[in-house]
Design a protein around this nucleic acid. Structure first.
Length: 848
RNA sequence: GCCGGUGUGGCGAAAUGGCAGACGCAACGGACUUAAAAUCCGUUGGAGAGCAAUCUCCGUGUGGGUUCGAGUCCCACCACCGGUACCA
């Protein structure tokens, strides 16, 4: 005997049935231009999900939130007559698979394949209308050969500052092309994680620990592959303007790139031929510079340190070096530093200022040296107070704030030729003054660093690079894909030597050349997958020109950059993935390989789903909701609808199982509008369905539902679209005889949300074919107009009465009717009516 | 610290400057049933008045402002969440 509770409608049977049907008929396959079945008359719509990393844990309820939103839009656009590209794939290279492999001894390709199968099965159970013929997998040699090919494009290109574009390296006329390539090798201080046996990008380090696993990370100089993303910093900022992205995400990217305008100022070191270059955003405060600070790692420290200070400088340097990044941030509050004993000369007034070293100056930003203006910089102020360095006012605040520690804009004072100038003007004048004398110049600095692109891992794309006589060169395109060697032992070596260095045979490219042993980071494959979906099986090009132009092109004659029409995913990719992908896309665009300057026209972030306790879902809290269990109990349609009904897509919101039940009840009511159950529990077409004309009230409900659902899907307000359909169902549930025509329309409107249920019911009461293939209904504005309107009557803005008037009543008629209403009489008795405001169709406000 | 977001019933939430709380959950009452589940029909922001239908007052984080009218616009503040952090 089954303890399973009775299902409100037989979703288990029908969902499986329609999933098989869609698979067998390839209902959602959309051919490319030129292919059989392609309809060139239709406009295109490219709706994209952030593809998942197929982890061993399987899908969680966060994934299907965004996926359901895009699925509804894809199905809707399809019914509206678009050619819809709606694909799914796997971002399958990466650290977790490799670590799992090391733990279990199973090859990562095996576990990856298993995880992908599991994810695919789970996604299919939710009934997504993906074109599965376009599935991509970043670990497939047919895919990553093109990831490697794109790397070669980067390697063989440089950024021409004159054209502000990437160009083939052959247009570079300088002596050393290796110095300007977009992919280059550099010895840089990197985040080395010995526990993971790899270096990490800055973005992968959180609070001095690895984002994956939380292991400690130390800075080490190592030879690494870098991508010159900084060359594109300005374009990556400026070209955000044309994108339909949330402003908050644009801001996040702008802040990450961190552009600041300022000036470089040269300070001569007294008694030497050296000079210290500093970067400042406030050249107007140069007269207030009372000391200089170099980063402890600064190259000049060694040469300028006075003999008397040598010991203290060296021990301070050593102390800094041993501090991990974690400690450095922890100790951020307390300033520390030591004087070098050297002095510099302020170029603007010849004043002698001491040179210090301190770890609050970072080696990686600007010039690694600053001029300290303690009066008008919080950090310098703190430092100067601690070490009793002079504090000299040079800016007068406009208000009555104290000048000490004032960092805002004001008027220059005690600054000779700048006196009386407002800050922006003073900046300009000082920069000009410096440039005229050759002791400085206006410059721009960015927080963005070049992208550290190599990893010491096995489970990633090998570089298409070989080393010969200490120099690197690219292998030929025809040698791609370069597959990783089959290895039994792919454990980290425990040293910075990558695991591939153990593949002796594979390493040997020729008698004199050895292969590069680093691999690419996980970001590589996800930087261009949206392009591969356009033409996933192309063996001759990463994407055909025609397919790229069609799917990625701008819609009609709009001035927008074009690209993917809608991209939905989590905020966690706001900077990294979205910045990297834009960078690659711009390189491909400059080199003529793609037709648009930006990859993603419209971006929407789904909010995260919290556990039932309102806390972030996590295994340790035990509040994780498993989609499979929800689907087993309530069905995929209820799961989809609930995820959309919870609240606005972009908002963070807690899961509530009782809410799923409510949505499930709604779907069951739809089912019972069409079906009735016999004594023996068999479902059949309801006898109360009739071919009836609708009465006025029903017409109004029907057409306002069409209107609202259509508009709400366009604006991604799925929660209110579902509410409206509930109102429809509530209105028709009471009817004794049910008009079948109106129910057909409901099935069409509901289809993108609950595709299985609606297909099944369409088979019973529809007009043939699939609902998914029907044309989206349009509403009749006349059906929404009532003969009589109910207006509200306000006295001084407070609701006092209601009034029913003819639709075409004039303002005068409405006004006199309102004044005559008993309530208005009562409230205005004995008072002078000062004003009457009539808003036609809405209200009358009487002011007394 | 800085940047961003959010504050509305018991809960998830709705509301082009115009009836605050649609829709759903939960709760309560009723119908059906031997009973329960399911289903269907109702009630449900708070306080007060009335036998009653109904009426009055209060109410969208706090305090001001604009307006005939503010959850919505403006100013100041508070709380929570997220991001970021010595970026000169």
């Amino acid at each position: 005997m089954s303890t399973e509770r009775r299902k409100p409608y037989p979703f288990d049977r029908i969902e499986d049935k329609w999933q098989k049907y869609w698979d067998a008929h390839q209902t959602f396959h959309c051919p490319n231009p030129g292919e059989k079945g392609f309809d060139p008359k239709k406009p295109k719509y490219y709706v994209l999900d952030m593809f998942p990393y197929p982890s061993g844990a399987g899908l969680h309820v966060g994934h299907p939130e965004g996926y359901t939103a895009t699925d509804i839009l894809a199905r809707f656009k399809r019914m509206c007559g678009f050619n819809v590209l709606h694909p799914m794939g796997w971002d399958a290279f990466g650290l977790p698979a490799e670590q799992y492999a090391i733990k279990t001894g199973q090859h990562p390709s095996v576990t990856t394949a298993q995880n992908i199968d599991n994810f695919r099965t789970q996604l299919k159970r939710i009934g997504f209308a993906y074109d599965w013929q376009r599935e991509v997998n970043t670990t497939d040699p047919g895919y990553f050969r093109w990831t490697q090919w794109i790397f070669l494009q980067l390697y063989n290109a440089w950024f021409n500052p004159a054209s502000q574009k990437a160009e083939p390296i052959t247009t570079y006329t300088g002596a050393d092309p290796d110095a300007v390539r977009l992919a280059y090798v550099a010895k840089v201080a990197v985040n080395w994680c010995s526990a993971l046996g790899t270096v990490l990008a800055n973005e992968e380090v959180v609070d001095g620990r690895s984002e994956v696993g939380g292991h400690t990370v130390e800075r080490r100089p190592m030879r690494q592959w870098m991508l010159r993303i900084t060359a594109f910093a300005d374009r990556l900022i400026n070209e955000l303007d044309g994108l339909d992205w949330p402003e908050s995400i644009k801001l996040l990217q702008r802040n990450w790139i961190g552009r600041s305008e300022g000036a470089e100022v040269h300070f001569k070191v007294e008694g030497t031929s050296h000079s210290v270059r500093v970067f400042t955003t406030r050249p107007d405060t140069l007269f207030g510079a009372t000391y200089l600070v170099l980063a402890p790692e600064h190259q000049l420290v060694e040469e300028i340190t006075a003999p008397s200070q040598r010991d203290s400088v060296q021990s301070y340097q050593a102390a800094c070096k041993s501090k991990s990044d974690l400690e450095r941030t922890d100790l951020a509050k307390e300033k520390s530093g030591v004087p070098t004993g050297a002095f510099a000369l302020n170029p603007v007034n010849g004043e002698r200022v001491p040179i210090w070293i301190a770890d609050y100056v970072l080696t990686g930003y600007g010039t690694g040296a600053i001029m300290a203006v303690p009066a008008h910089d919080t950090r310098d102020h703190e430092f100067a107070q601690k070490f009793q360095l002079p504090i000299k006012q040079v800016v007068q605040p406009l208000g009555d704030e104290p000048w000490q520690g004032f960092t805002g804009h004001g008027t220059a004072v005690h600054s000779d030729f700048l006196d009386g100038q407002p800050t922006p003007e003073a900046k300009r004048q000082m920069t000009d003054w410096l440039e005229e004398r050759g002791t400085g110049k206006g410059t721009v600095q960015y927080k963005l660093r070049d992208w550290l692109f190599s990893r010491q891992r096995y489970w990633g794309e090998p570089f298409p690079i070989v080393w010969e006589n200490g120099r690197h060169h690219a292998i030929h395109e025809s040698e791609l894909p370069l597959t990783p060697p089959p290895m039994e032992d792919f454990k980290p070596t425990g040293t910075p030597e990558p695991p591939l260095s153990k593949a002796v045979e594979w390493l040997k490219y020729s008698e004199t050349a050895r292969r590069e042993t680093n691999t690419m980071p996980q970001w590589a494959g996800s930087c261009w997958y949206y392009l591969r979906y356009c033409d996933p099986d192309n063996a001759g090009r990463f994407v055909s020109r025609d397919a790229e132009r069609y799917w990625m092109g701008a819609n009609d004659a709009s001035p927008k950059p074009g690209g993917v029409d809608l991209y939905v995913g989590g905020t966690e990719h706001a900077v990294l993935h979205l910045l990297y992908a834009r960078f690659w896309h711009k390189v491909l665009f400059d080199l003529g390989h793609v037709s648009t300057p930006e990859p993603f026209q419209r971006l929407v972030n789904q909010g995260i789903i919290l556990g039932e306790d309102g806390q972030k879902m996590s295994k340790s809290r035990g509040n994780v909701v498993n989609p499979d269990e929800v689907i087993n109990e309530f069905g995929a349609d209820a799961f989809r609808c609930y995820e959309m009904f919870m609240g606005p897509l972009e908002q963070m919101k807690p899961w509530n199982t009782a809410g799923v039940e409510g949505v499930s009840r709604f779907l069951a009511r739809v089912w019972r509008l069409v079906m009735e159950e016999s004594q023996s529990g068999e479902w059949s077409r309801s006898g109360s369905l009739k071919d009836l004309p609708l009465d006025k009230a029903q017409l109004k409900v029907l057409h306002s539902t069409i209107k609202k659902v259509t508009e709400d899907i366009e604006s991604l307000s799925f929660n209110t679209a579902i509410s409206q359909m509930m109102i429809f169902v509530n209105a028709f549930t009471g009817a004794g005889e049910k008009p079948v025509g109106a129910l057909r329309t409901l099935l069409q409107l509901l289809n993108p949300f609950a595709p299985h249920l609606t297909e099944e019911l369409w088979q019973i009461i529809g007009t043939g074919g699939c609902v998914a293939d029907q044309i989206w209904p349009t509403f009749d504005p006349d059906a929404l107009i009532e003969d009589e309107l109910e207006l509200i009557v306000q006295i001084n803005g407070k609701l006092r009465d209601k009034l029913t008037v003819k639709r075409d009543a004039s303002s005068q008629e409405i006004e006199s009717a309102a004044l005559a209403s008993p309530k208005a009489q009562e409230w205005t008795a004995g008072k002078t009516i000062r004003k009457v405001i009539v808003v036609p169709g809405k209200l009358v406000n009487i002011v007394v």
